[in-house]
């Protein structure tokens, strides 16, 4: 059960965001307690990725505020603080293909924290081991890794600096069910070891049930339901039920 008494590590209040005439977010409110895992579900194009990008300062909301650990994220300095204390696993991995695996994993240590290359490589290999990648993978190029290995390397990059909050954007997209389950297990295991809070967006209901403490459903730019993962099957919300059961019939019109 989520501890609502603790000060949220992340708060999004009344976030609005439009791209030209298209209003994507219409007042999104999200809170994430320290050490807890929130999963945001919703159809394609409902604004899940935009929500995460607003939280990370990659997009500037048109309206609303983002607070990290109680502090309003409004200046470059506060943005820098939030980025130092967060990790992000992008949908496609977003690994830098001009660098080796270990340079990718330890990028924040090398270029932000100015850690020496020897020490950075040592820590990268330790972190690769946590995500079940062998030390022999450290010197490979990104193109030499399989999709599952790339996801693991991206996970290692997200956790190497011991963040307080980790964002996962579709962590199992493009993976076979077995590899996807292995990645979910790694996420749960590593997040628990770090004691970090997480915000995950996914369509994969198996991932939701495995990694979520709480679930929020985003539809047409607003959170329309939120509750503990145990309540997902008894939400009483027609939108949530349709999405969870993957039915074409219901209030949500398929985007085709």
């Amino acid at each position: 059960m989520t501890d609502f008494s603790a000060r949220p590590i992340l708060e999004l209040k009344n976030i609005h965001k439009a791209f030209g005439p298209k209003q994507v977010l219409r007042g999104v409110d999200i809170t994430v307690a320290p050490g807890k895992s929130l999963v945001i579900i919703g159809g394609s194009g409902t604004g899940k990725s935009v929500t995460i990008k607003c939280a990370l300062g990659l997009l500037k909301p048109d309206q609303g505020e983002v607070r990290f650990d109680g502090e309003l994220v409004s200046t470059r300095k506060t943005l820098d603080t939030i980025r130092r204390r967060t990790g992000m696993l992008f949908q496609g991995g977003a690994l830098f293909d001009s660098l080796s695996v270990w340079e990718n994993v330890s990028f924040a240590l090398l270029y932000r924290d100015r850690v020496g290359r020897g020490e950075a490589k040592k820590r990268a290999i330790e972190t690769l081991a946590k995500v079940r990648l062998p030390a022999s993978a450290a010197d490979l190029r990104i193109a030499e890794l399989s999709g599952g290995m790339q996801k693991r390397a991206a996970l290692a990059r997200a956790i190497i600096a011991n963040p307080d909050l980790i964002f996962f954007d579709e962590p199992t997209t493009g993976l076979d069910p077995i590899t996807a389950d292995a990645v979910n297990n790694l996420i749960v295991e590593q997040v628990k070891a770090l004691g970090a809070a997480t915000v995950t967006i996914t369509h994969d209901m198996a991932s939701v049930r495995k990694i979520a403490d709480e679930v929020a459903m985003l539809h047409e730019g607003s959170i329309i339901w939120r509750g503990p993962v145990a309540d997902l099957d008894k939400s009483g919300n027609a939108y949530v039920e349709q999405f969870v059961h993957g039915r074409a019939e219901g209030p949500i019109q398929p985007a085709i």
Binding site: K53, L58, R83, G87, A94, F96, A108, R112
Partner: peptide, 21 residues
């Protein structure tokens, strides 16, 4: 290619400014 595959967003989340790096 880095822009469309979110590598530049990844740089920003790692506190590296694309202008510098």
């Amino acid at each position: 290619a880095m822009r469309v595959t979110e590598q530049i967003d990844a740089l920003l989340t790692l506190s590296a400014k694309p202008e510098r790096y």
